[in-house]
Amino acid sequence: MKKVKMLCTLAALMFGIGLAANAQCSDDDVLDGCSNELKAGFRYLKTYDVDGDGEFSYVFSRGNTYLIQTCEEASLNKNVKITVMDRTKHKIAANYDRAGTISNSFLAYRCNSTSIYYVKFEIVGDDPECGVGILGFK
């Protein structure tokens, strides 16, 4: 009887997990919350999933300043290292120092030569359940 109870509990738990997988935290809410945090004057361009280490590329245009920021749930996330690399994948800007200490949840880069650039996210600590990276420009 104990075994049956245990299995019923297990089954309920698994159904629960199943439902939770369907109703994971809403990306829309995270995105909206994060884009609302964009600093004054910056216009929203793109969103990137930050649910693990990742890299994306983008053609930055000369004369524009780009802002890359990361959020977990609806607030800024200071547990993500952001690195900007040039077309040769040489590091040119970061939100952390040589010791790896993260200074901000964002990084601003002013582009003086139009080219393809790479942005790398590295999560420090636990992966956020609903992490996003936002790219804005002005």
Binding site: K3, V4, L7, L10, A11, M14, F15, G16, I17, G18, L19, A21, N22
Partner: peptide, 19 residues
Amino acid sequence: MLRKLFVVALVGSFLVACG
């Protein structure tokens, strides 16, 4: 019997998550 119940639970939860 218990094993069958376990499999049904597993498949059921998977279907709810992915269906």
